[in-house]
């Protein structure tokens, strides 16, 4: 039975800020081991969707399931949903990893300190266990020699790789990436995408909001295209990128190709 339960499932998510509807009726399922890339123009609600998926910003209505557990909500004896207690919400959140656009490392802890923090504080691992786990992960993101460096001494790409290791240290069932390379200098994007590509190849369940269409075409099992708070189209990368069905997807891809054609020719 568990085989068929999706890793994460969102049903009819709506998110409004005042009069502004940022998400309108989004439903999305991601299977275990699946890599989904979410594309779309700025302001289309991609980041808001991710923030609803780990309850950082609870949706106005709709439900999210991780495995077979309802996220952030529970039903009382009459079956009416109500917000989940803080301790249980935190336990659920710890099953979902998140990597942010602006890294959000803690500047008063070293690289390895950042990675050890969650396992120690949230999972209750001993310092030694946490250190062992963190060393393995820093090694995986190619930063074993930067373990004792503070974030301020690391490049953006290195900081983001530490942030990925930090998320992995919680051994999450799902990893959410919120435009992980958008704040990086162009020459640093590659090292982060390489790490993510490796994760994708190891069948890590990932939802990646990104503008890196190249990465999406190589790493994603499925592309979801969003505009104005709705999912406009989804499909396998090859289909979506070569023959998008919807007008808005075509416009988006055309604009993207025009913007990058110069650089891609230059690199040929």
């Amino acid at each position: 039975m568990t085989k068929n339960v999706p890793a994460i499932r969102a049903e009819h998510l709506v998110k409004t800020f005042g009069d502004l509807e940022v998400l309108s009726d989004i439903s999305l399922e991601v299977a275990k081991g699946e890599v989904v890339c979410v594309l779309g123009p700025s302001g289309s609600g991609k980041s808001t969707l991710l923030r609803c998926l780990n309850w950082l910003s609870p949706p106005t209505s709709g439900t999210v399931w991780i495995g077979d557990e309802m996220l952030g909500m529970e039903r009382d004896a009459n079956g009416t949903p109500r917000p989940l207690g803080d301790a249980r919400l935190r336990r659920q959140r710890s099953r979902i990893g998140m990597v942010f656009q602006s890294f959000n490392l803690w500047p008063h802890r070293t690289a390895i300190g950042n990675v050890m923090e969650g396992p120690m504080i949230v999972r209750g691992l001993s310092k030694n266990e946490a250190r062992e786990r963190a060393e393995v992960l820093l090694d995986r993101v190619g930063l074993q020699d930067k373990a004792t460096s503070y974030p301020a001494k690391l490049s953006g790409g290195q900081q983001q790789r530490v942030a990925i290791a930090r998320a992995l240290a919680m051994e999450p069932e799902i990893l959410l990436f919120d435009e992980p390379t958008s704040a990086l200098d162009p020459e640093l994007v590659g090292e982060v995408l390489d790490v993510m590509q490796a994760l994708a190849e190891q069948r890590t369940t990932m939802i990646v909001v990104t503008h890196e269409i190249g990465f999406a075409s190589e790493a994603a099992d499925r592309i979801v295209f969003m505009d104005e708070g709705s999912i406009i189209e989804e499909g396998a990368p090859a289909d979506f990128l070569s023959s998008p069905r919807e007008q808005r997807s075509r416009q988006f891809l055309d604009r993207y190709l025009k913007r990058t054609s110069f650089t891609s020719f230059a690199s040929c």
Partner: peptide, 27 residues
């Protein structure tokens, strides 16, 4: 203290108390 650092802690499952003592106050 930047909001993003607090969100990173919260997304990881830290409690408000843990965020105060591990993230906010030391800085």
């Amino acid at each position: 203290v930047p909001e993003g650092q607090i969100e990173a802690a919260r997304a990881m499952g830290m409690s408000t108390r843990q965020i105060w003592f591990r993230v906010i106050l030391p800085q």
